[in-house]
Simulated assay, not measured.
Amino acid sequence: MLKKTLLTAVIAMTMSACVTSPTGRSQFIFMPDNQVNQMGLQAFDSMKSKNPLSKNQRYSQFAQCVAYSLTREVGGQWEVVVFEDDTLNAFALPGNKIGVHSGLINLVDNQDQLAAVIGHEIGHVLSRHSNERLSQETAVSTGLSMVQAVAQPQTALGQTALGLLGVGAQYGVILPYSRIHETEADTIGLDLMAKAGFDPRQSINLWLKMDKAAQGGQPIEFMSTHPSHASRIDNLNQHMNQALQLQQQAWNMGKQPRCAK
């Protein structure tokens, strides 16, 4: 009886964790957002205490100008910090925290290319990707995926649960989901930069520069788990016409960022 009651409770909790991302993709999320946000705040504070911050005011002003132009489109209070780090990287954490490495600022040619990266990272936050990953991995460790797979194996969530079992937990679902998240963040970031008035076409130039830098042997932490450059650019091109329309609408509303590197 206790086992049946526990099974029912777990199934109910798991079913309530089915949500939809901003692009319409089905997600499995059950971690409280405030808890995930607190984790993001703690991680950001730790990074600031352990890693050197850039003393280049021009870099900080540039990154903040670009980031704040983007975050005005989504609302909330965001903190933006430039770290003194030569790697080509940027990130955004739950709790509205944005970090940019000085190496990335050195790489980009203009505000639009930096907006492509920061917009992508904000896309991860808007899509609650951190919560989704935590929820998936928590489900694996607690056995929730096993219960859901047995209970409703034909549902999308049930299929995800099946993939999380055994070897699938390492190769079948969780790692590929990272690539799904990256593609989703690309799409959201492209629209976001366009809505803020940045030129979305520069996102293509940015990834071409990243590709060239990678071939030159530069460390690119940002690209470590991302889709191939070709598939990323193809996805961006598929959404470019819509993004250009959003940019024109932004310009008609007077949104024309002027962030000088």
Rank of each mutant, 00 (worst) to 15 (best):
L93I: 07
R201N: 01
L41I: 08
I180A: 10
N131D: 03
R72E: 07
N106F: 11
N237D: 06
S69G: 09
K209R: 08
I180E: 10
I29P: 15
S102A: 13
G95Y: 15
L2K: 14
R133N: 13
M146A: 02
M223K: 15
P52D: 00
L164K: 11
L41P: 08
A243M: 06
A90W: 02
L53S: 12
G123C: 05
V147L: 02
K212G: 06
A243D: 02
C65E: 01
Q38F: 01
L114F: 10
G95D: 03
G95M: 06
I11W: 07
Q215I: 03
G168H: 10
L6W: 12
D45K: 06
R72Y: 06
T160P: 05
V150E: 07
G254M: 09
K4H: 05
S69L: 08
V173R: 05
N252R: 13
I220T: 01
A161Y: 02
R258L: 04
D45A: 09
D186Q: 06
H229I: 08
V100Y: 06
H101N: 08
L144Q: 03
N252H: 14
V173D: 03
I233T: 11
S228A: 11
A260S: 01
G158M: 06
D109V: 00
H226L: 10
A17S: 15
A9F: 14
I118L: 10
V80E: 01
K55E: 00
Q215E: 01
Q42P: 03
S127G: 11
M240W: 03
A63K: 04
L144H: 07
A67R: 02
F222R: 00
Y68N: 10
S46L: 11
Q218A: 14
A194Y: 07
T23N: 12
M146G: 04
T87W: 09
Q215K: 12
S228K: 10
N89M: 08
A9Y: 12
A63Q: 05
E184G: 13
D234V: 13
T8F: 15
M47C: 05
H239E: 00
T138V: 14
M31N: 02
D85L: 15
Y177W: 05
D191S: 15
N51Q: 00
T87E: 04
A196V: 01
L157N: 10
